[in-house]
């Protein structure tokens, strides 16, 4: 699903929707190429979203009412901008909170941070 020079696909499987929704929430509206470029830039190439994973996910999010689209005609090309719907805003927050909670649990579980009260 991903081209991940650093991480195995199993490790970050299931976070694609969260990444996309959160990026669009921060930027207001984005088009496909912009999303892949931004992820690559922000992660310094550690996570690269493939187009084969990006577009099916965008279509699915659009169909489920999380994303709104706006088309801009550029000569012979059409650029489709994606923005969050009200439902998408809620889903984005929920997904980010869920992932944050999961990461905290994993840190605790794998003993990557000192436990409270251990000092």
């Amino acid at each position: 699903m991903y081209i991940c020079p650093m991480y195995s696909s199993e490790l970050i499987k299931g976070t694609l929707k969260t990444i996309i929704l959160n990026l669009i929430r921060e930027q207001g509206r984005m088009y496909g190429y912009e999303i892949t470029s931004r992820v690559k830039e922000l992660t310094e190439g550690k996570i690269q979203i493939t187009e084969g994973a990006l577009y099916p996910t965008l279509h699915s999010l659009e169909k489920s009412g999380e994303l709104d689209t706006e088309k801009e005609y550029m000569g012979k090309r059409v650029r489709k901008y994606y923005s969050l719907t009200e439902q998408g805003q809620i889903t984005a927050s929920q997904k980010v909170n869920e992932l944050n909670d999961f990461m905290n649990t994993m840190k605790f579980l794998l003993d990557l941070e000192p436990k409270l009260g251990n000092a």
Binding site: G32, T36, Y55, L58, H59, K76, R77, V78, K80
Partner: peptide
């Protein structure tokens, strides 16, 4: 652009929305 558009279609991308997305992305 026409060349890319035709090639995408010939390679089995039938969904119009997906064709437009891929065309812009490849461009």
């Amino acid at each position: 652009i026409d060349f890319i558009d035709d090639d995408i279609r010939n390679r089995g991308i039938l969904l119009k929305e997906l064709q437009e997305n891929l065309l812009d992305h490849i461009c």
